[in-house]
Every structure is written in C-alpha cells, then in structure tokens.
Amino acid sequence: MAPQRQSGGTRALTDDELAAVLDAADVGVLAFGGGTYPYPVPVALGYAAETDRLVVQLEGGPDSEKHRRRSRDGKVGLAVQDRTDDRWRSVLVQGDLREVAYQDAPRAVAALTESAERTPDPVVWSDLRPEETLTAYELVPAKRSGRAYRCE
C-alpha cells in the first residue's frame, strides 16, 4: 500500500484531544533509557481521564531488562497513536515510572484491565515463571505533547 500524503499539515492536540487519544489507546510503546540505546517495549495501558492517571503493566522478574533499566532510571517515554482513514494522531508522554498499588489507582487499573482483555497478549498468569510477576506502574507525566495529521 502506498503511503498517504498529508494534506492540511499538522497541528498540536489540545489537552482534551490528548486525553481522548490516551483514553482510547489499548497499547503504546514505552521506551526506557539507562543504557547505550533506548529500550522500547510494547505495553498495554490504562488511562483514567477523570483522575488524569496513566498506568502500564510490566511483566518479568527483577533481572529482566525493563526492570533493570527502570531501577537505574525511572524516566521513560511513551508513544501512543490513533489512526482512522482520514486522520492520524500521536501522543508522547515523558515522565517518571513509579510502582503503584492496584487499589491506589482503581479507575486507571480498570482501564488497563479492559485494554489487556482487548489486546492479544501472549503473557498470561499461567505463562509466568515463578520468579516473574506482573507489576502495575504509574507514568507520572513531566511533559505531554501530541500532533494531529489529516490524510487524503
């Protein structure tokens, strides 16, 4: 399929549009620093617009690459996109990743659970090795931005 040309240029998303893209997203790409190169991984996410809380879930044990990088430097970037036939919107969130108890962010965790149910994910509880866990993290934003593109 040939790439679509942009028409009408791009524009920044409003705060309401940023929230709408995050609210509709089931999956994003979370990039960790703390190494020679960034370490991006796809993650299921949950966003609660009414509380402005964004939660992701990471699997793996303490020796996994993502957990090692998170413990060195909790600063991460998250990229999310929303595409239809005539438009494409992207949101970037940069901030600190902090472990969160499920009961401390119930609406965002409920959204995460719904996302995980809609997203094909090869990791289920029964697949985890004894040293691995599923852990919820809140991405506390330091910076958010988004762009909208109109396609022909």
Results as ranks from 00 to 15, higher is better:
residue 152 E to R: 11
residue 72 R to M: 12
residue 7 S to C: 10
residue 138 E to M: 04
residue 49 A to Y: 01
residue 132 E to S: 15
residue 138 E to G: 04
residue 60 G to H: 10
residue 102 Y to K: 04
residue 36 T to K: 07
residue 38 P to S: 12
residue 17 E to S: 02
residue 106 P to R: 00
residue 55 V to G: 04
residue 82 D to C: 00
residue 56 V to W: 08
residue 16 D to C: 02
residue 119 T to F: 05
residue 145 S to N: 06
residue 142 A to S: 14
residue 104 D to Q: 13
residue 143 K to H: 15
residue 22 L to I: 06
residue 122 P to R: 14
residue 61 G to K: 05
residue 24 A to M: 01
residue 33 G to R: 06
residue 49 A to R: 14
residue 97 L to E: 04
residue 93 V to T: 10
residue 64 S to V: 03
residue 2 A to V: 10
residue 142 A to R: 15
residue 119 T to H: 06
residue 152 E to I: 04
residue 112 L to V: 08
residue 95 G to L: 03
residue 133 T to L: 09
residue 30 L to C: 09
residue 86 D to H: 07
residue 11 R to I: 00
residue 65 E to S: 13
residue 32 F to I: 08
residue 40 P to W: 10
residue 88 W to V: 12
residue 78 L to Y: 11
residue 124 V to S: 12
residue 57 Q to V: 06
residue 80 V to Q: 03
residue 91 V to C: 03
residue 104 D to G: 07
residue 148 A to I: 04
residue 135 T to E: 10
residue 73 D to E: 14
residue 51 T to A: 10
residue 46 G to C: 01
residue 118 R to W: 03
residue 135 T to M: 05
residue 81 Q to H: 03
residue 148 A to L: 11
residue 4 Q to W: 01
residue 100 V to M: 08
residue 110 A to V: 02
residue 13 L to I: 05
residue 114 E to K: 14
residue 28 G to H: 04
residue 71 S to C: 07
residue 143 K to S: 12
residue 65 E to K: 11
residue 112 L to W: 13
residue 139 L to D: 14
residue 145 S to Q: 09
residue 49 A to E: 11
residue 111 A to K: 07
residue 29 V to M: 11
residue 147 R to I: 10
residue 113 T to Q: 11
residue 81 Q to N: 03
residue 63 D to N: 11
residue 146 G to C: 04
residue 35 G to T: 11
residue 3 P to V: 08
residue 8 G to M: 03
residue 75 K to A: 12
residue 47 Y to D: 06
residue 124 V to A: 12
residue 6 Q to L: 11
residue 22 L to H: 05
residue 88 W to A: 14
residue 22 L to F: 02
residue 50 E to R: 12
residue 113 T to G: 05
residue 46 G to W: 00
residue 98 R to K: 10
